[in-house]
Design a protein around this nucleic acid. Structure first.
Lengths: 347, 347
DNA sequence: CTGAAAGCGCTTACAG
DNA sequence: CTGAAAGCGCTTACAG
């Protein structure tokens, strides 16, 4: 798109114009080449009425010859353009992410919104991506994690809805809260006779995750002495590795609560390989409620979250802020979606 | 974005301007409110030099008060804007899709491109989505399937790269070709003593998929009398259902070749439930090579495709066409990426 | 059916 | 440090 000043009008050679000379053909170039006015070009390009077939054909031919493509900016400036939503996610390869994205896309599309996606996990230049996202969209929704404040700056005036914030006080946010479900889960573990649970967190020894803290606390309040294991990545591989290590110890743990479903899938795999029966010897629970969990054996019990609901709340906040119906800050722009315990076979 | 004419300059009340009156504040409104010129507003908003701290603060305050957000069109028109890629996919909930999207995103980001995604599978108004995608992007890549020709029209002058086309002759395209891998697979089945293979296609009785045809043909040429089963959806559930039906028959099939990995996962699950040992009783093979396949037990053998390679070729074509280095049609804009047999435990 | 005029909202030189 | 002028590429009334 960017480029030096455009060609002087006529350029009658058959080469794709604008390619080597730098700079794309504009409506003016096409008008000149076809010997018509600008609005006649507009009529031809946009299939509008009020143009003779012959003229239209001539204009289209000129456009094709010059490799003319209308500028979305020129057009957007006058038409107002479409609504654009920006979505910031962490890793499209974790099945949770497309599940969420899919919900956002579907709901956004229903309201005529387009969605631009930025996967900041894969990116070396995440800051640039977020800034670019902001400059192309009307509002941004997403997982901001620890970079929230910096990205808030980069986004400038673009309203932002944070998903599952690490900490208060975000501006607008949808909290995804496992607290209630964790209590129900802890009760379930007691009821099924679990003695030695371990919490497999995705975190570092310095910073246990909120999720991990809630689990540890709920277990301790019920008289357990739960073990806390920190896994560096929230992947199946990492979940499997840590599990293998856990199972090698003398003292037999009988429940593993993983940070997310993908890790829990790794846990199940490691148990299988070690000849440990799930749920008889060890109960396994994940978090997220991915459909994927019912494809493995045993099927995965999990703290499920309704991602349609998350998407709906986020979109509602975003559109509300845009319409000026909501403040940019405060309690009115905080929503909460809660996990619920989904028992399948593994626990 | 769209809306009636904007406010007359001054609007000193503390309400978020432009919200109820319709129409957003422009740079002119902010300039008037702050008592400065337009380019001073530009300087303040964009953190440029050549502006006093006091003026900057005053401008920013006015902008905040008026809820001013610069138009991306006004800016894009003069700056040239960022490069935007459109990606059309079929269902983000099939793990194949985010895997591909992830590769496209990563490679695109490396070159400073942003990506807009349209999931046409979920959409009731897919045509509108594709058209919107075209109007917001410089080039479109994606799965077009049977709607290719219609969407070609809608896209107008926006160059398009088709992924895995159903049929010739597309314009620019990346073919994803399982033919070689299917031959290798068929040899493998012979070598391992398979007698009665069944091809579980995602298709209707009227239209067997290319993939299905290739499999049937390769098997027949080796003397097999393969059975062809049509599953309506390419999902795990559908794969499981059809498998249950297959296993209930008297004559024992000893290999199931699924249309894709997700279906194959359903096949594995159905086998497990029916007490059929894989691979001893039945060998199972999928197509795609999803990492997911190594999380189940037994791990899934598959015809894998390198999605990084697919993304790379597609992007290469797209950027080449945009730069005018490639023709819009013909052999030069056709690339092929081939599957390869990836043996894990299930076959 | 066609074109001259005005304007969308912003930034980039250029003058002061 | 600040502003008047010009222009980015397009479309929307309006006249002919």
């Amino acid at each position: 798109m960017a480029g030096p000043p455009r060609l002087t009008p006529q350029h009658p050679d058959p080469l794709p114009a604008g390619s080597t000379t730098g700079g794309r053909a504009t409506i003016i170039d096409v008008a000149a080449a076809a010997g018509v006015s600008r609005q006649t070009v507009t009529r031809a390009m946009n299939g509008m009425s009020g143009i003779s077939a012959a003229t239209k054909e001539r204009v289209l031919a000129a456009a094709e010859r010059l490799d003319y493509r209308p500028s979305r900016f020129g057009r957007g400036l006058v038409t107002g353009g479409d609504h654009q939503l920006g979505l910031v996610v962490n890793d499209l390869r974790n099945p949770y992410t497309p599940q969420l994205a899919s919900a956002v896309f579907r709901l956004a599309a229903e309201q005529g919104w387009n969605v631009m996606l930025a996967d900041v996990d894969l990116a070396s230049d995440a800051d640039r991506m977020v800034q670019a996202l902001g400059s192309q969209t009307d509002v941004v929704i997403g997982y901001l994690g620890s970079r929230r404040d910096r990205w808030r700056e980069l986004l400038g005036t673009v309203p932002m809805v944070e998903l599952d914030p690490y900490s208060e006080p975000p501006t607008a946010a949808v909290w995804i809260d496992p607290a209630d479900a964790v209590e129900v889960l802890a009760d379930h573990l007691v009821a099924t006779g679990v003695r030695h649970p371990v919490v497999l967190d995705n975190s570092s020894p310095e910073h246990t995750s909120v999720r991990g803290i809630l689990m540890m606390d709920a277990l301790q309040r019920r008289g357990y002495l739960p073990e806390l294991v920190h896994a560096e990545h929230g992947t199946a591989e990492c979940g499997a590795e840590e599990t293998t290590r856990i199972l090698e110890r003398r003292r037999r743990q009988d429940a593993i609560l993983a940070f997310n479903d993908v890790m829990a899938l790794g846990v199940l795999q490691a148990c299988r390989r070690a000849g440990v029966d799930v749920p008889r010897d060890v109960r396994v629970v994940g978090v997220d409620g991915l459909p994927l969990g019912s494809l493995v054996s045993p099927t995965l019990s999990t703290l499920a979250v309704d991602l349609d609901e998350v998407a709906r709340e986020a979109l509602d906040l975003a559109l509300g802020m845009l319409a000026g119906e909501l403040p940019r800050q405060g309690d009115a722009v905080q929503r909460t979606v809660r996990h619920r315990l989904l028992l399948r076979e593994s626990a």
